[in-house]
Structure formats: structure tokens, C-alpha cells
Amino acid sequence: MTATTMRAAGTAAQGEKQPRVQNTGKRLGAVAVRLGAIATFALILIYFALFAPGFLSSFNLINVVEQSAILGVLAFGMAVVIIGGGSNVTEGGIDLSIAANMGLCAAVFATVLQAGYPDAVALLAAIACGVAVGALNAIAVVGLGILPLLASLAVMNIAAGAELTLTQNTVVGAASPLLAFLVSGSFLGISALAWCLILFSAIMLVFIHKTTFGLRLYAVGGHPEAARAAGINVPLHVGFTYLFSGFCAAIASVLAVSRLSASTPGSGEMLLSVLAAALLGTVFSRRLVPTIGGTLLSVLFIGFLANGFQLLNVSSYWVNGVQGALILLVVAVTSFARGPEASR
């Protein structure tokens, strides 16, 4: 072996060693991030439990679950899009239209009910509407290859515009047996809306974490090239995530109409909370990807945040700020933990 080749071999060995050190550092960083975030969540909740009067009462806890139902269903939709499209914040899967889509579905649902049709027809109309908006996203992202961030931003405006056209920016009142059941029904002391979140979470848990389809979705989002090489139809899976998020928007819209006895303007405002829930949810997974359990926990955390502040009589103005700060923290820290190629 000549001196040159030896030197070359040495450089190569060094080159191999460096990424390993980087990888370990990154992994440690990721663990620190996860534990830190989970500890923050826990500390805040413990603080509320100790100092916010009535925080731990079963009545209050069920209230928060009930209040989180709409956000929860939307956040699951967003989580599935991020799982299938990859969790890169700029280029990965994201559905900015989901909250506006919910507003449009709610308007459709309330308008169809007000026209005198039964629940089943209104429900089908809302779902058809939600999935149609989802299809628009799917065509833009998969068919036309537009960045999901931009595609869904455009679709968000289409949905918001359609809602305004349909409702003329007014409140559309709605009453039906289904809505009455959702508002006042309860089983085992738990309200119908809270049950909706519990059942939907259970279904999602099985669907995403226990089926081959769920596994493939993670593969598609994590490594589209590898997934394609393994014979998975990547565009089909990605397209499906947008249809599914549209479906979630429709389900959430029915819950929203039941809670407000009407479809009201301004649903788009929920987008920040939905994004917060889906992004915060990633800290509960080892690979910093959205999971159903993680998403559910962060949805409940956001609910508890508003609830705890109110019980402590801290100004409600703080809630938005804290929520925004948490998103910033999680996005910043997860991009750091994933390394430069993820935040690119």
C-alpha cells in the first residue's frame, strides 16, 4: 500500500466517522427535544392541577375533551397529510385549507338542513363537499405538482370564498335530531361530543398504526423514493391523504354546527390551532413524525391550556401567544434535531 492510498483510506475512515458522530449528536438532540417538550407539557399540567381551582374535577376534564372534539378531528386530518407528505415544514405535506373547508362544509350542512332535508342528506352533502375540496388539493399537489403549502393556500381561499357566497357571511341556523343528539346526548356521564373524539381517535389509532395502509403511508412520507422502489403507489397514497383531510373537515363541521346551533363565519381562524396540534404532536414520537396518540395529546394540551388559564383567571389574551410560542419552539427545535436536510 502506498503512502497516498493509506492517506486516502485514512481520510475515508475519518469521513465515515464524522457522520456517525453527527448522527449520535442529532439523536441525542432529538431525545433532549422530545423529553424537554414532554416535560414542559407535564409541568404546565401539574401547575394547573395544583393551582387552578376545579381543574381536576371530572366535570371539567370532560368539558375539555368535549371542547377539543372539533380541533381533534381536524388535527387528525392534518396529521395524516403530514404523515403521507413528509414532515418537512416547507416542502412536505400540509393542508392549509382544512379549517376553511370545515367552514364551507358547515355552511353546506346547515343550508341543506334549513332547506328541509333530513340529517342523512345533509351529512352526505357535507362529506361530498369536504372530499371534493380535498380532491382539489390532491389534483393540485399530485396531478400538477404544486407545493402543498401553496396549493392548499389557494384552495383555502377557494373554500372561504365559496362559504361566503353560500352564506353571504351570515349565521345559518340549524336544528335536527342528529344535532340535538350531539349537543345533549350522553353515555356513562360522558357527553356525545366527547364520545365522538374518543371513538374517532380509536378508529384513527387502528387505521394509522395497525394497518398495512398506515405503515405504507409512513413509508411514503418518510422516503418516497424508497417507497416507490418497494412498489408502493406513492401518488395514490399522497392524494388519498388530502381526500381524507377533506373528509375530516366534513366530520368536524357537523360537530361545529351542533355546538354552535348554526354555521357561522370565521372557521378559518382555527387553522393556527390545527397546525399547532399536528406539529406539537410530533414531539411524542421518537422519529419526530406525527402519530395519532401524539396528536390527541397535543389537542388535549391546547384545550387544557385555554381552560387552565381561564380557571387561574389569567387573561385569555395569553393563550394565543403561548400557543404561537410553542409552535415556534417545536418547529425550531425539531428542525434542529432533524438536521439541515430536514429544514431545507
Binding site: 368535549e66 371542547q67 354552535l260 370565521g266 380557571l311
Partner: peptide, 20 residues
Amino acid sequence: LDAGRKDQQQIAQLQTLIAQ
């Protein structure tokens, strides 16, 4: 409690308020 023009937030605040 200021709901910031969000109906859902106002309803959630009222619900928690009743519990208080």
C-alpha cells in the same frame, strides 16, 4: 373572557365559566 370574535371560543369559555 374575550373570545376574539371566535364563536367556538366564546362557547368553550362559557362552558368552562359555568363549571367555575
